[in-house]
Design a protein around this nucleic acid. Structure first.
Length: 309
DNA sequence: ACTAGCCCCTGGGAGC
DNA sequence: TGCTCCCAGGGGCTAG
């Protein structure tokens, strides 16, 4: 699933490929993943959830997006933000199984077939639910097996001031995010360390894979409660977080589930994954069998010997 | 203001 | 072989 390193990989690739391109057309077979969140648009006024509502009218979404030029592409947490001309922004969250792909496709027998050579083996094309045509004749596709991903059109200022962006915690790799800051944000919470690391309002961008890997690296049990962690242990977690995330970006993310870069290529961090989905396998450090346990409806993977409760 | 738990989805694996 | 059941998993939302 795309977490910070995967999203960062995607954003870097997008900057090389689609910066300065203009959206010409949009296609979807799943309108639910699109939302118009323009406060001024008729029929999309403020609701109890904030601005907007589901883009029941796909035509409207298409009309607003057409002709907008991509001026900047950046990441905040696991969100991809395309800043467009006329102060519009397109927000894409890939959620569990979404990934953006760049190339050309043609629909044959109801299935999108890739026309880009050497690209996209496998089934990713079957799961294309959103397709943007660009002014250079190329396309940007959102492939998403589980259809949880979303694409939202905003006015840039409103997006930047939105609850969902403003409430995100600090970027774990930013220069300002020192150990002192890390302690400060964690100390506000009392829960189990793994859950808190994945809490987007505490720190933005870490999900199940990297929280498991960070805690293995730091030799901290995922169920440890924040207030019980010593200064030394917190430092270990902080250092492991920076190390693991940087390494994962360097390796262009993990493809343990189905992440691909925008050319459909796998990342290679999964080759060095130590615990995530390694239940029943031997710990690379001590040989003990890796365990899996439920935490807040999610599974945590850890070495019961190296990571003492 | 908090948080636990449901819900959105679909492929894959288990059980029969 | 083929059916049914169950599960993963980020985050929005709701009920408590």
């Amino acid at each position: 699933m795309p977490e910070l390193p995967e999203v960062e990989t995607t954003v870097r690739d997008l900057n090389k490929k689609v910066l300065s391109r203009t959206f010409i057309d949009v296609w979807t077979d799943f309108e639910k993943m699109l939302r118009l969140r323009l406060s001024f648009a008729k029929g999309y006024g403020r609701t109890q959830q904030g601005f907007g509502g589901q883009a029941k009218n796909f035509k409207k979404f298409k009309k607003e997006l057409r002709g907008k030029k991509i001026q900047k592409i950046w990441r905040r947490g696991k969100n991809i933000i395309f800043e467009l001309s006329q102060s519009y922004s397109l927000l894409i969250h890939q959620k569990l199984t979404g990934h953006l792909l760049y190339g050309t496709w043609k629909k044959e027998d109801g299935i999108w077939k890739s026309k880009t050579s050497g690209l996209l083996e496998e089934k990713v094309n079957t799961y294309i639910h959103l397709l943007f045509t660009l002014d250079n004749g190329q396309m940007l596709a959102l492939s998403d097996l589980r259809k949880f991903a979303k694409a939202e059109l905003w006015k840039t200022e409103e997006l930047k001031n939105s609850e969902e962006i403003k409430n995100l915690g600090p970027e774990p790799l930013s220069k300002d995010f020192t150990f002192e800051k890390f302690k400060e944000v964690l100390k506000k919470k009392k829960g189990k360390i793994k859950q808190i690391l994945m809490y987007q309002t505490v720190i933005a961008g870490i999900g199940n894979i990297y929280s498991d890997e960070i805690l293995f690296e730091a030799q901290i049990h995922p169920f440890r409660k924040i207030p019980k962690l010593s200064e030394t242990e917190l430092k270990k977690i902080y250092q492991a977080m920076r190390k693991i995330l940087k390494k994962a970006i360097e390796l262009k993310g993990s493809s343990i589930t189905d992440f691909r870069d925008i050319k459909g290529k796998r990342g290679s961090f999964d080759k060095i994954i130590k615990v995530y989905r390694k239940e029943g396998k031997k710990c690379s450090r001590c040989g003990t069998i890796i365990k899996r346990a439920k935490i807040g409806g999610r599974s945590a993977h850890f070495c019961p010997k190296c990571q003492i409760l």
